[in-house]
Design a protein around this nucleic acid. Structure first.
Lengths: 171, 171
DNA sequence: CCATACTTTCAATATATTCTGAAAGTATAA
DNA sequence: TTATACTTTCAGAATATATTGAAAGTATGG
């Protein structure tokens, strides 16, 4: 493989890792994901361990997490016993899966907690300002939830191109 | 203050803190922000320290960071020497500021890095698949950048309501 | 200018998160 | 059933991140 391509892959992997850690996702998990995205063939655990200099346990746990997110799947190669891994290659699908998981794991619980705040605050005069602000925030988070829900409907991904067209037209 | 309102405020602060740490933002910074959002009056550093049980240094650093993000501002109260802090109270403005900062700090550098990956990969046949995937990802990240850019134009915040209307109509 | 009242900084410390590696677990082929 | 070839788990170690608190810095009024 050319030196340039090697360097480009390495940069790709570390960029993805850095970005992930800024968004609350484990850096190694993102590097494994990036490695598989950058690689055409499916990779074995041993290849992943070697490429990223990580332990077997670390690789195993992060591959499981990526599989839970629906970003990576196990594949069998020929008659080999060993398992291989490959990433979802369609970038739009990948984006939908991430949106769906973050919505479910992070946004929905926040909506529940904000609703509980409103309930707890009661309806007295002294809490009016707090209730107003909480309600506005709740509406915003519900909007985000709604938008992520749309994104996550990958079978209807015609929606997003239309939204982008509208946004662009409004410059 | 009623027990219910106290509990509601505490839940609000801790919910915001938890959410923030899932999105790569310092938990204490988010708790300070939530405390100020939940509070009508501006608060002094000492009040914030007491409310969240944090040190003066920690409060000072997180207030500075919140000011850098444009989420909190210093205010003078009467003729007092002491500084007070209050949060941006408009939820839409708050959202715009967060969008603007994350775009600038996190998305734009990733776009640069992905462009560099493409350059480095060269134009040989062996890197064709890598280039294709990187280019798709770059397009996706540019789209996110574009959407955040739109969001951040708070003077044109009529844009988002129209997008939401479109999305809802397409259910 | 000094005393005072406050704020900021940063090295040391504490806490939280991630990683390792060896032991336990599991599936397969013979 | 057993040997083999792999995978998973998790307690302890390593690392990264956040926090403290005291010293240094700064602005104000007199």
């Amino acid at each position: 493989m050319s030196e340039g391509l090697k360097k480009a892959r390495a940069r790709f992997v570390s960029t993805w890792g850095e970005m992930a850690s800024q968004w609350g996702i484990n850096k190694t998990m993102a590097r494994v994901h990036a490695l598989l995205m950058a690689s055409d063939a499916a990779l074995s655990v041993d290849e992943i361990m070697a490429a990223l200099s990580i332990s077997r346990g670390n690789a195993s746990m992060n591959l499981r997490a990526l599989a839970d997110w629906g970003l990576v799947r196990r594949v069998s190669v020929g008659s080999e016993r060993r398992e291989y891994f490959q990433s979802e290659k369609d970038v739009w699908n990948m984006c939908c899966r991430i949106a769906r998981e973050r919505k479910k794991r992070e946004i929905e619980p926040v909506i529940g907690a904000l609703e509980e705040c409103l309930r707890e605050a009661g309806d007295g005069k002294e809490s009016a300002a707090f209730r107003k602000r909480t309600a506005e925030l709740l509406e915003l988070v519900r909007t985000l939830d709604f938008v992520l829900g749309k994104l996550a409907q990958q079978e209807k991904n015609a929606v997003m191109p239309r939204v982008l067209t509208l946004l662009k037209a409004m410059s």
